[in-house]
């Protein structure tokens, strides 16, 4: 019972953001128009992805400290979930980019960051599949995971600050400025982020238990 509270909460928040996100009043801006509702679906994917990757990174560090294989299973499950969110964020973003900027793909620092992130974590999965011995696999892939996460943060968190971007808050802060986000949007956006993180944690824990049963 106690363990299911966060699952129910996550589902409720996701359901709320999916439905209320379509119903709520949004600011009427040129070009972006009603597509601003995609904020709830697209941007929350990235927040959820970074949360999953950070949790995976943390479990990789703890594995190196404890040599406990359960930590390694958590790490890979969370990374897989983060990968799912990054693909979802990519697709929702491409649709949005086509509508507002007129192209599916643009040479934008954030899009490059996404492409690199996906390549890094695909390489991580390839690395894991190239080894058999469980303990060695866990140790080596934890090393790569830690290094890769730091590089990803550099690429999506530091380099975009130094170049111009089509995204809001360009050339400076890669996040939102205080006036970019209207209070009505916040009421849906933050619950969406929290909801997706909770649901992501839930699915990752299911995958973790599945892996534990398989071994």
């Amino acid at each position: 019972m106690k363990g299911s509270i966060y699952k129910v909460l996550g589902l409720l928040l996701v359901a709320y953001s999916l439905t209320y996100g379509l119903l709520t009043k949004v600011p009427d801006l040129p070009i972006i128009e009603e597509s601003i509702r995609n904020l709830f679906y697209h941007v929350s994917m990235w927040f959820a992805m970074v949360a999953m990757m950070a949790a995976s990174f943390w479990n990789a560090i703890r594995f190196l400290g404890t040599e406990d294989l359960a930590k390694d299973r958590r790490s890979i499950s969370l990374a897989e979930m983060g990968m799912f969110f990054s693909f979802m964020g990519l697709f929702t973003g491409m649709v949005w980019a086509k509508f507002t900027w007129g192209a599916w793909w643009t040479n934008d620092p954030k899009l490059n960051g996404t492409a690199i992130t996906i390549l890094i974590y695909l390489a991580y999965f390839v690395l894991r599949n190239s080894m058999d011995d469980a303990r060695k696999k866990a140790r080596i892939s934890a090393v790569y995971n830690i290094f890769a996460f730091v590089m990803m943060i550099v690429f999506i968190g530091i380099l975009p600050r130094m170049t111009d971007s089509l995204h809001p808050g360009n050339g400076g802060n890669p996040g939102f400025n205080s006036y970019d986000l209207d209070n009505g949007l916040r009421m849906v956006f933050y619950p969406a982020v929290i909801g997706w993180i909770l649901v992501g944690t839930w699915i990752a824990s299911l995958r973790y238990r599945l892996k534990a049963l398989q071994e």
Partner: peptide
């Protein structure tokens, strides 16, 4: 970056392309 990734690839005793796969995205920044 390349020292670490080639160390990883070497420890897996895997194929030679693994090092490149691991290193290329990490070199971009």
């Amino acid at each position: 970056v390349l020292t670490l990734t080639s160390g990883i690839a070497h420890r897996t005793k895997g194929n030679a392309t693994l090092g490149a796969i691991l290193a290329i995205p990490l070199l971009f920044p």
